[in-house]
Write a protein that binds this DNA or RNA. Structure first.
Lengths: 203, 203
DNA sequence: AAATTTGTTAACCAATTGGTTAAACCATAT
DNA sequence: ATATGGTTTAACCAATTGGTTAACAAATTT
């Protein structure tokens, strides 16, 4: 259970780069700022990661490989659709509260750089809808849930869970909430969202 | 009905700036690139807008003032909740298909610059939840819809409508779709999403 | 312990970037 | 025509940025 991040220079750089890239993006991040945050000389960044681009990609892949298993949970395990939605919603919201910059970062840089996804897609852990699709069709046939395309259901699940974090400043403004009430609202969504979805699709 | 954009230098700059800022963001955009796109000398940008920051803010406010009325439509008109959701969903998706970079741009820059929202909030057209809240409570009381907090319902509506566009590259990859099928999916959501929501909340 | 490899630093560099300037251009009023 | 005002341009500038280098320090190998 010992979760001490090893404090080699290389991992110190990666940690600092994560923090800077995730809050400022590729274009907004400065190598000097990353070096300062890591408490080392700027030349070391290039010594270990060659270029800004390569350091960025290390951070990005790291971020994505944190996100992907979360999605695989809903796609590839064996419980019923209802179970999956309940578990995923609760787990995912907890997960994001721990990594608030993550979804935004991934979405943003993917929009700026759509070809990134090609490299990711070949990975064996890249989320795949096949099993989920079969399961949805099966539960529709047996009358457990109402007709819906698996793709649309999956998009809805992602949207309801991820969007509130991606659009945090916008939502805070519309709801007229400070951080405390915003956080409370997100906490409530752990059950709120799954009820909302299940209400809609269950027969 | 004549929608010819006036071709003064000033508006040519704004158009070019819109296009560059919305696809590359504040940090990724280059003044030279905006000037090239507008077909004019870089000095003109400063002549008309003083600085990159001020040009950016002109573009941002412009973008936001396009988005806000869309949301006000659901918050401030007089039809029933069900009607509102149907109309909003269909209208909003049509709107975004015409302005695909818009939501991402606004969300992204607001995340990078949360203080922007403070200036926007004082505007009389800034979306306000009060009326919607009363209406939701009323329809719950009269048994038209199931109990739900207005804030959560509003977040859900935004999420289901906006997220699929914000996360387009991610969704395309998961669904394994090219642009054509992605677009078809979004087209279907014009009715899909409102059915999904209404299914969930209607008694 | 000498030699070699690996890690670290300060100083430096070329390219890029937002922004400025001074002169030229051009329409309109005198 | 010419003076006047806003408009446009090319050239320029200082600051920043990602990246390099050469020397130095610390391990590691021989």
């Amino acid at each position: 259970m010992n979760k001490i991040k090893d404090d080699t220079t290389e991992s110190q750089i990666l940690e600092a780069a994560k923090s800077i890239f995730q809050s400022k993006g590729m274009d907004g991040a400065r190598m000097q700022e990353i070096a300062d945050k890591a408490g080392i000389n700027k030349a070391m960044l290039h010594y270990y990661y060659r270029s800004k681009q390569m350091l960025f990609e290390a951070v990005f892949n790291n971020a994505f490989s944190l996100l992907a298993p979360q999605l695989n949970a809903i796609l590839n395990d064996d419980s019923s659709i209802e179970e999956k939605i309940k578990n995923f919603t609760s787990n995912y919201i907890s997960f994001i509260i721990k990594h608030p910059y993550l979804p935004n970062f991934v979405i943003q840089e993917l929009n700026r750089n759509p070809e990134f996804i090609i490299k990711l897609k070949v990975s064996k852990d890249f989320p795949n809808l096949d099993k989920f699709k079969k399961q949805v069709e099966e539960e529709i046939k047996t009358g457990v849930i109402k007709p819906i395309k698996a793709e649309q259901l999956f998009i809805n699940i992602m949207a309801l869970n991820i969007f509130p974090f991606v659009a945090k400043p916008l939502i805070k403004a519309f709801i007229n909430a400070e951080d405390a009430t915003y956080n409370q609202l997100m906490e409530n969504r752990k059950t709120e969202v799954s009820n909302f979805i299940i209400n809609s699709i269950k027969n």
